[in-house]
Computed example of a mutant assay.
Amino acid sequence: MLTRRSTILGLLGMAAALPAAGAIAESAAAPIRIRVASVISSAWLPLWVARDKGLFLEKGLDVEVMTVQNLSTTIGALGRQLDISGATAIDIVKAAAGGLDVVGVCGNTLETAANRQMRLIASNQSGVTSTGQLTGKTIGTPSINGVVHIATLLALKRSGVDPKSVRFIEMMFTNMADQLKAQRVDAVEEVEPFVSALNKAGHVDLGDPMLQVGDPITLTCWMANGTWARANPEPVTRFVAALEEARAYIAGYEVEAREILAKWTRLPKDVIESIVLPTYSTALTPRHVSAWIDAMRETGQLSAELNPSSLVLK
């Protein structure tokens, strides 16, 4: 354990950059409790690694992890039942457009052409082989006007399909395979680890709509109530530092990290081994958020004037 921890700290330069972490470890002060929410997806592996490997505790944090079905439902609980929640830039933009004080505290995953996590997947029984053939079809989505949905709307529009001609049905990622098999939908907006399973089952990969927004583009991030985040800069800094160490641990000890992924997702070993892990990054800047603001405007999903700089914790 000490060898692994030293390796991680060496990769990050954390020993020199965060002297406070050492003081925290040596002190007898009670850890600061933080309530954090995420969904079951390989995107949130850094959270689980930081929790299971004791990285949060080393930073003086007692992190309680809550699992939810849809991250968009956590916004109203921020600053009350929750302190920090997994999110997408879309969640932050929509909340701000609605007058809520929500900020992004750090990034989590990036979507890149070299490492795609999202796909638009068509049923192998639908006859659909391209995005341009989805006129009049039914698509399963995790959340109407969520991040993957906005990307799909953008891809449809740029492929010559009127998004209004497409019917969207909300469903959980875990149910999408069954819905395709039952032919209740013609395609689904899916993410890893479920993309790998659908591809293995022979369904049709229509590409990654996320790359219509940008490459690279922020896929997931972490958000908090703005008032809480500004009043608690030290716990936020420690939280981000622990996630950064977790990111380095995943890069250096992928086998062990996948064991943690199996524990939290309860997916079979063969599925866990086939999953393409996301590109993890704690970076989050106004530019990352601005790309999604532009995508929402192009798809007609945003009319409010927003300043991206005010949506990211400084």
Rank of each mutant, 00 (worst) to 15 (best):
M66E: 06
K94L: 15
L110A: 09
A20S: 15
Q179C: 10
L277E: 03
Y249V: 01
D52G: 06
M296D: 11
I272K: 04
T138Y: 03
A113M: 12
P286N: 10
A262Q: 15
K269D: 14
E58G: 15
L311K: 10
R33C: 01
K164F: 13
L71V: 11
A224C: 04
D178S: 11
L302M: 09
S38H: 14
S6R: 12
L206K: 12
T135D: 13
G76F: 01
T265F: 05
P268A: 08
D83S: 02
P235V: 02
P233V: 03
E254A: 06
V161K: 07
S281F: 02
I75P: 00
I272P: 03
R51Q: 12
K164C: 08
K181Q: 06
V213D: 05
L198E: 08
A28P: 02
L206Q: 11
F56D: 01
T237Y: 07
E170Q: 15
Q125A: 13
L71T: 09
K137A: 14
C221N: 13
R258M: 04
V36G: 00
R266C: 09
A283M: 06
T129P: 05
A77P: 01
A37V: 01
T73S: 11
D162A: 14
R80H: 03
V185R: 05
A295E: 09
K181F: 04
T141H: 04
L57R: 13
W222L: 10
R238K: 11
V102I: 15
T73I: 07
K269A: 14
M172N: 14
E273V: 00
K59V: 01
S165F: 09
E189K: 02
A229F: 00
T112V: 11
G107T: 05
V276K: 11
P31W: 06
R4T: 07
D101H: 01
S309E: 12
A151I: 09
G107C: 03
A114C: 09
A187W: 06
E254Y: 01
E234V: 13
A177G: 05
N199R: 14
S143Y: 12
L277H: 05
T74R: 03
G202P: 09
N70K: 15
H149S: 03
I40Y: 07
L302Q: 08
A248C: 02
I293Y: 11
Q179M: 10
M176G: 02
R119Y: 14
T74L: 02
V68R: 07
A291I: 04
A242I: 07
G10T: 03
I272L: 08
L82Y: 00
I32R: 06
S126V: 09
G13R: 00
I169R: 14
S27P: 12
P278S: 07
K200E: 14
